[in-house]
């Protein structure tokens, strides 16, 4: 089933400037994995080295964070749209 993923401005450099990408997937997890397959350069910004989705990448289904639904297992149906929304984090500590 075809899902539309809306891409935040910061990551459009990895989607040929496209604000949204159509992917295949039955769950949020599958849809994001397909995005990484279609746009491989985006993967390092979405996933930790261990393959987990980066903690500051949030996925919204409508105006609801999927963390408040079934997380990455949230089911999707044909024609659904999800939005990648970054949380911006940081802070002082040991300097490079």
């Amino acid at each position: 089933m075809t899902i539309t993923i809306q891409i935040p401005t910061a990551l459009r450099a990895f989607t040929d400037r496209q604000p949204e990408v159509r992917v295949e997937g039955a769950t949020v997890e599958e849809a994001i994995a397909d995005l990484a397959r279609i746009c491989p350069d985006i993967a390092q910004h979405l996933y930790e080295e261990n393959g987990a989705l980066r903690s500051f990448i949030n996925v919204y289904f409508g105006d609801v964070n999927v963390k408040n639904l079934k997380g990455l297992e949230t089911p999707l149906k044909d024609g659904d749209a999800i939005i990648l929304v970054p949380a911006i984090a940081g802070g002082g500590g040991i300097c490079p």
Partner: peptide, 18 residues
């Protein structure tokens, strides 16, 4: 606060390009 204006490893790990 009371720390150099240099990005920390934590800043880098959580940053986005662009």
């Amino acid at each position: 606060p009371d720390h150099p204006a240099l990005p920390s490893d934590y800043d880098r790990e959580h940053a986005l390009p662009f």
